[in-house]
Simulated assay, not measured.
Amino acid sequence: MTQFFKFCFILFLGCSTVTSAQDKKQQKEIKKLSEKACECTDDVSSALIKEEIIDKINFCITQAIVNEQMDESLKELKNIQKLLKETKWETRVENGDTVYVADKGSKSVILADKNFQEIQDYMMKNCKRMKTLIGSEDLASDKSYSSNPEAMKFYTEGNKYAEKGKNDKAIESYKKAVKADPEFAFAWDNLGLSYRKANNYEEAIKCYNKSLEVDPFGILPLQNLAVVYEYTKDYKAAAGTYSKLIESDSNNPEGYYGAGRAYYMAGDYEKGVDNMFKAFVIYTETRSPYASDAQNNLAFFYSDLKKQGKEKIFEDMAAKNKVDIK
C-alpha cells in the first residue's frame, strides 16, 4: 500500500500521468479489456452489499486480463511448438506472479494485475453498468419498504417516472407514497433525491431528516444529506454529517472521503487531509475504483497547502496514517 501511494503521488505531482505515458497500443488494449470486463459486470447483482459488488467487478477485470494473456500465450506456444496439439501445463508462482510452464519448456508469465488500475479507471468513466452498480447504496432495513399496498404502488410509480427523467411527476408520486405511509424510509429518500435534482435543497434536507427520524441507522439519507449541505456550501454541516456516517460505520470509506473534502473546504485542513488519507487507505486495500478519486483530492490538497507554505500538515497526516510520501 505504501509503495503504491508513493508511485501515484509522484505521477500526480510530477511531469506525466499514466495515460500520457501509454502508447496507442496500450490504450487500445486497455479499452479492449475494459469492454470485456464491462460485459462481465452484467451478471453482477446490484442487491449485493457494496464490498461484494466491488470484489465481483474486480474479478471481472482480473479475469479479462488473465484470459487475454492466456490467449496470447497459447498463440505464441503454437508458433514455438509448431502447432503442438496437446500441451500439459505446470502452474507455479515466481516472484509473486503466476507462471504457466509448458511440457516442453516453453514458459508463459501471466500478470494478473497488468494495467489493472488503468482498466478500472477506464471502466469508471465508460462502463455504464459499473457506474450503476457502484452507485447502488440502498441497504434495506425494517423501515425501508412499506407493507401498505397503496404506498408501494405510488413508490413504484415514482421510480418509473424518475428513470424516465420526469422529475416533477416523480415528486408527486413519492409525496403520495409517504402520505400513505409516513414511515416509508426509501420513499422519503427518493423524494429527497428528486427535490435535490430540482435544486430545491430546503425540501431535500427535510426529506432526508424525515428518513433519518424513521430509520436513524439509514446510510443513504446521511450521505445524501451531506451532499446537499455541500451543494449549499454549508461545509461545516456537511463535515458534521459525514462524521456521523463514520460513527455509524467506521469501515465505510465514503464517510472519510466526504469528511475529508468537507473539512478541507471548511478550512480545517488537518481534519480534511487526515480523513482523505483514511479514505485512500481503505479504498486501496479493498481495490475500490474510488481510490483514484482520493488520490486526486490528496494531490490537490498537497499542491494547495504547498502554495500556502503549510505542506507540513500534509506530511504529518501522511505519517499519522502510515503512508510514506518521501
Rank of each mutant, 00 (worst) to 15 (best):
K128Q: 09
T62V: 14
E183S: 08
M152A: 01
K82E: 14
Q63T: 15
Y257E: 05
T156R: 09
K88P: 09
N126H: 15
I171M: 11
K312N: 08
L191C: 04
A239E: 02
S16P: 01
K24H: 04
Y242L: 13
E183D: 13
E270L: 12
I54Y: 02
N224H: 09
I110R: 05
G240W: 04
F5H: 03
C207G: 04
N200L: 07
A204P: 15
M265I: 10
K153L: 07
A151F: 14
T156Y: 05
Y231W: 08
L222Q: 02
D189W: 09
M123L: 05
K271N: 15
Y263G: 11
D234S: 06
A262N: 13
Y263E: 14
K56A: 11
Q69E: 13
A294Y: 03
A21M: 12
L139A: 10
L77I: 08
T286P: 06
R196T: 14
M124P: 02
F186R: 06
N148Y: 01
V228D: 04
G267V: 11
T241E: 04
I10G: 10
A180P: 08
V18E: 11
D168C: 00
L222V: 03
Q81H: 10
Y269H: 10
M70G: 12
G258R: 10
E254A: 13
I134N: 01
D293I: 03
K197F: 07
K28V: 06
V214D: 02
E285Y: 12
K164Y: 00
D97W: 04
E203R: 02
K24A: 06
F12D: 11
E230K: 14
S250D: 15
S73A: 15
I325K: 10
S173V: 06
P149C: 02
Y155D: 06
Q120G: 01
K310T: 10
M123E: 08
D324R: 03
K28Y: 00
V281Y: 01
D113I: 01
L33R: 06
N297S: 12
E72T: 04
I171C: 07
D234C: 03
M317L: 03
N252S: 12
Y174Q: 08
A237S: 15
L77E: 09
E150S: 10
E202F: 01
D189G: 04
A64E: 07
K24C: 01
R129W: 04
G192C: 09
Q120Y: 02
I30W: 08
L11P: 00
S136C: 05
M152V: 07
E163Y: 00
G258T: 13
Y208R: 13
D316P: 09
E118S: 03
K310L: 14
N296E: 12
I110N: 05
N67G: 00
P253R: 14
S46M: 13
G240S: 09
E118L: 02
Y283K: 04
S136G: 06
M152C: 03
S303Q: 11
K50Y: 13
N297W: 08
K206I: 11
R129F: 01
E213N: 08
M265C: 05
M70D: 15
V109G: 00
N190R: 05
Y269C: 08
K143G: 03
N275L: 03
T132G: 01
E35V: 15
A140D: 14
K78D: 15
D23P: 05
A162Q: 09
S46N: 14
S173K: 11
M130G: 06
T87V: 15
Q295I: 04
M265Q: 13
K153A: 05
Q117M: 09
T41A: 02
T87E: 12
F9P: 05
A64N: 08
G258D: 11
